[in-house]
């Protein structure tokens, strides 16, 4: 599904030049659950943003669903993104002014889905995430765990092929964190590819495969034992 080779990303600020990604190559197949780990500042978020088509690489090749997209322009990337990718962030990134229902509904609006179909889909997914009773609440009225469930609901509302999660449990206690991990696992089992950045070895255990980064380079890939059995 994703194949990157020698991917590079350099940040230039006034004087300093940071090589956030240095010739990173990796492949993710459809239906996989991959965790990316590494110390702070090693380039995990940078990699995830590029995988999520939010940012462009400075060099290397990036094939998404078989198409080379390293040179895609903003509009094409945006189009590909809104059809295929869902995001979950550490800080939830829900819109404060919108209710739970409206937050989840948003991607469908941008896809041009009709109102009645939207209602149906949103209710279904809220039901599934068990926050239907909170549909008219605003994000600030919810606990962190509930907010992240809403974020997950929003990420999956348009049935994306790929879900990218950047430290989805970073702001949650372990109980809530586990709940979110269960959700991601369920989605993965239903066929969605999941790539997750995490600092927690515990969370990484939910993944099939862990990719470790250090200073912008892949240092190790290990596959979970039970999967290889």
């Amino acid at each position: 599904m994703i194949k990157i080779e020698n991917l590079e990303k350099v940040y230039r600020t006034e004087e300093v030049e940071t090589k956030a990604l240095n010739k990173v190559s990796l492949e993710v197949n459809e239906g996989e659950f991959v965790a990316i780990m590494g110390p702070s500042g090693c380039g995990k978020s940078t990699l995830l943003n590029i995988l999520g088509l939010l940012d462009e690489p400075d060099g290397g090749s990036f094939k998404f669903l078989g198409t080379e997209i390293a040179k895609f322009n903003e509009r094409n990337r945006a189009d590909l993104r809104k059809r295929n990718i869902g995001f979950v962030f550490q800080s939830f990134n829900l819109i404060d002014e919108l209710t739970v229902f409206e937050n989840v509904e948003l991607p469908l609006i941008y896809l041009g889905v009709g109102a009645s179909e939207r209602k149906e889909k949103v209710e279904k997914v809220l039901e599934k995430m068990q926050i239907m009773h909170r549909r008219n609440h605003f994000p600030q009225q919810l606990s962190g765990g509930q907010q992240q469930r809403v974020a997950v609901a929003r990420a999956v509302i348009n049935n994306p092929k790929l879900i990218l999660a950047d430290e989805p449990t970073g702001n949650l206690d372990s109980a809530n964190g586990n709940e979110v991990m269960e959700l991601l696992t369920e989605l993965n089992e239903a066929g969605t590819t999941v790539i997750m950045v995490t600092h927690s070895e515990h969370d990484a255990r939910y993944a099939h495969r862990v990719i470790r980064l250090l200073d912008g380079e892949v240092v190790m890939e290990n596959v979970r034992e039970q999967f290889t059995v």
Binding site: G52, A78, N93, I95, L106, Y110, L111
Partner: peptide, 16 residues
């Protein structure tokens, strides 16, 4: 800005 960022990630176009 934050809201706009989120909306963009979720697929909002420039005219949107």
């Amino acid at each position: 800005t934050k809201e706009i960022g989120i909306r963009k990630v979720l697929g909002a176009s420039l005219p949107n």
